[in-house]
């Protein structure tokens, strides 16, 4: 493997212009996309037409796209994330208000999904077509055949309405203190986290199983086995390590979502996360919010994919990236 230091440095240097390029594309798409933030105002007969025109002028929306992009870029470089049309406050305040909830809910669901997918997938791969494998397979197919809007509703019907065990409206500011605070938070987090984790775990399990299955068949595993190594050691040392390459790829693809949120699930359980902020901003055509969220999201995409590339080298030292 070549010296990772120079490789990482080079990739980081490339990341800057690529981010700039992505930001230009994002901005152009948003500027050209149909819809406008003051639709409500224009269609309301009680509001004179020039109010919307004034607002457009005030927020500089009638300037050419290039001018608006440069204005956004210079502001962003100075740490100014923009100003929301819909809420008339700074975008970073809006995002910070929702960041912790998003990290908590989406983050724990991803961890949970990984904790399910890795052991189940590997165990199923070591015994292909066994009873365990078949059951796990069937469950995973059900898992990704059913969309989250459906499983979410199913959980609500069972656990909130039939059994009355769990609340289904998420509240980020619970007034209780001490243990009760944690208990209440735990109770309301169970359903959104499970819905997301099960959906994610279903597909990850399939990938892990398939990756492990591929590796188990490769020559060197057979060699290791024939050398008389214990099955457990073979699995842990050779199979898991190599099977992790696709898993690392997938996890890196999925991790930015911890920031981006999960739109459908947040909507169902009313989790005040960044996903629901994004969707309401999109529906209200609140471009500064959309731009800020997607831009941070793309920063994360780039850095996690870079991280994945570095991890490949560590998982399989023969991989050389130059």
């Amino acid at each position: 493997m070549t010296l990772p230091g120079t490789y990482v440095l080079r990739r980081l240097l490339i990341a800057l212009p690529s981010l700039l390029g992505i930001s230009i594309v994002l901005f152009t798409v948003l500027a050209l996309a149909p819809g406008d933030p003051f639709g409500d105002i224009v269609s309301n007969p009680n509001i004179p037409a020039d109010v919307a025109a004034n607002l457009r002028l005030k927020f500089g929306m009638d300037d050419p796209v290039a001018v608006r992009y440069l204005r956004w870029l210079t502001a962003m470089l100075q740490g100014d994330w923009g100003f929301s049309f819909a809420s008339r406050i700074d975008v970073d305040t809006l995002i910070m208000q929702r960041l912790w909830t998003t990290l908590l809910v989406i983050g724990s669901s991803q961890v949970l999904a990984l904790l399910i997918a890795l052991p189940v997938g590997i165990y199923a791969a070591t015994r292909p077509y066994s009873l365990f494998d078949q059951v796990a397979n069937t469950l995973t197919f059900i898992g990704f055949s059913l969309p989250t809007f459906f499983t979410g509703l199913l959980l609500i019907l069972v656990f909130s309405i039939q059994l009355d065990w769990l609340p289904f409206v998420y509240r980020s500011d619970i007034s209780a203190t001490g243990w009760r605070f944690f208990w209440e938070h735990f109770r309301q987090t169970i359903m959104p986290v499970s819905v997301l984790a099960l959906f994610q775990a279903a597909s990850w399990t399939r990938y892990v199983r398939s990756a492990a299955l591929d590796v188990i068949r490769l020559d060197y595993v057979t060699t290791a086995r024939s050398k008389g190594l214990k099955e457990r050691v073979v699995i842990m040392k050779h199979v898991v390590r190599n099977a992790l390459i696709p898993v690392v790829t997938l996890v890196a693809l999925q991790l930015p979502a911890i920031f981006g949120g999960a739109i459908v699930t947040e909507q169902i359980f009313r989790v005040p996360g960044i996903g629901s902020l994004l969707i309401s901003a999109i529906l209200a055509n609140d471009t500064p919010v959309i731009m800020a969220v997607t831009f941070v999201f793309s920063c994360l995409v780039i850095s996690f994919n870079l991280l994945a590339d570095i991890l490949y080298g560590w998982l399989d030292p023969r991989i050389s990236l130059r």
């Binding site: 009355d164 609340p167 289904f168 409206v169 509240r171 947040e266 169902i268 009313r270 005040p272 629901s276």
Partner: peptide, 22 residues
């Protein structure tokens, strides 16, 4: 007073009519 936002109309109706959460 707490005015909670978000979600969809059907589940809002559920929270008042079926579970009494709101």
């Amino acid at each position: 007073i707490e005015m909670k936002g978000g979600g969809d109309a059907v589940s809002a109706a559920r929270a008042v009519l079926q579970t009494g959460e709101f």
